[in-house]
């Protein structure tokens, strides 16, 4: 009798472990399928010229022209590069300074509430951020000023700031107090202690946060559809609409022309490769940092 009950409990333990493992496997199926599909549908268009040449025109195969030119995603790569550089410029310095305040100065009610609402802001939908920036630019510059590289970069920066701020705060909190005290003991003024000693002790973790923020912004399509809009010529100045990678995947992916869909898959594959590489690098960098 007693033996039976224990055997049942051991079975239960085994079954629950197996079920839990099954959950992991089930979650990995979509990831595997996404990568597999992207490689099968997008792998064949991938080449160096795919990254540099212009968008494909809409074209359906005819008897006289059985294959359509595939073209590439050059404009989108150019636009995404510019947009990410601009949005990093707008978001990284303010984000780090705000993080410094939260960790070094903001001990009271204000600091705590800023920290809290920064977390809340991380959860605000990107499409709402897009519509916010759209409306803001519409109110200030009128209908002509809305769709521009500038508004796209501002939208991405708003998505990035909370991430940079919170990771900076967390990173600075991990710097031992003795480091600060050692700096003060040398008679270094406080701002220099923070700028030169504390920030540089935490620079690896802060860099990780910046990379995570760039990654989040780099994958966003929704806010850019409402702000940077798209531009077949890539980047043509701050006040002109700008191309970027994620919206192209949406536009071409829902197109009726097979050559454009192929380009969408190629672009998706490029984006997946970049994202997974960054993600893995950050993981391993962070792990060696912590251990």
């Amino acid at each position: 009798m007693r033996f039976d009950r224990n055997a049942r409990r051991r079975w239960m333990n085994w079954i629950m472990s197996a079920l839990a493992l099954l959950c992991v496997v089930v979650a990995l199926v979509p990831l595997g399928s996404i990568i597999y599909t992207a490689v099968t549908f997008g792998g064949h268009v991938l080449s160096f010229s795919f990254l540099t040449s212009g968008y494909p025109l809409a074209c359906s195969p005819t008897p006289s022209q059985p294959t359509c030119p595939v073209g590439g995603i050059g404009p989108a790569i150019e636009g995404t590069g510019v947009l990410l550089a601009l949005s990093s410029l707008f978001s990284v310095p303010p984000g780090i300074l705000a993080g410094v305040y939260l960790s070094e100065f903001g001990r009271g009610r204000l600091g705590r509430s800023v920290s809290f609402f920064t977390d809340v802001m991380t959860g605000s939908p990107s499409i709402v951020v897009g519509i916010f920036v759209y409306t803001l630019f519409f109110l200030f510059f009128g209908p002509r000023g809305v769709f521009s590289a500038l508004s796209g970069a501002v939208a991405l920066a708003i998505l990035m700031i909370p991430i940079v701020t919170r990771t900076t705060e967390e990173a600075l909190r991990l710097v031992p107090n003795s480091v600060r005290e050692a700096a003060y003991a040398l008679g270094i003024p406080r701002y220099r202690a923070v700028l030169h000693v504390v920030l540089s002790a935490a620079r690896g973790a802060i860099l990780t946060g910046v990379v995570l923020a760039v990654m989040r912004a780099g994958g966003e399509a929704a806010p850019l559809l409402l702000t940077a809009l798209g531009n077949p010529f890539g980047f043509q100045g701050l006040t002109q609409p700008s191309a970027s990678l994620p919206p192209i995947i949406f536009n071409f992916g829902t197109s009726a022309y097979s050559n454009q869909v192929a380009v969408a898959w190629g672009a998706a594959l490029v984006l997946i490769i970049i994202m997974l590489c960054i993600s893995l690098t950050v993981r391993f960098a962070l792990r060696s940092k912590l251990s």
């Binding site: 979509p30 399509a221 994620p246 995947i249 998706a268 997974l276 993981r283």
Partner: peptide
Amino acid sequence: PLGYIVELLAAVPSVVFGLWGLAV
């Protein structure tokens, strides 16, 4: 390692999920 791989799912952009959704 399994934890890393599950977290990779979070690195896939939304629009790629959409494209995969349409096709698969």
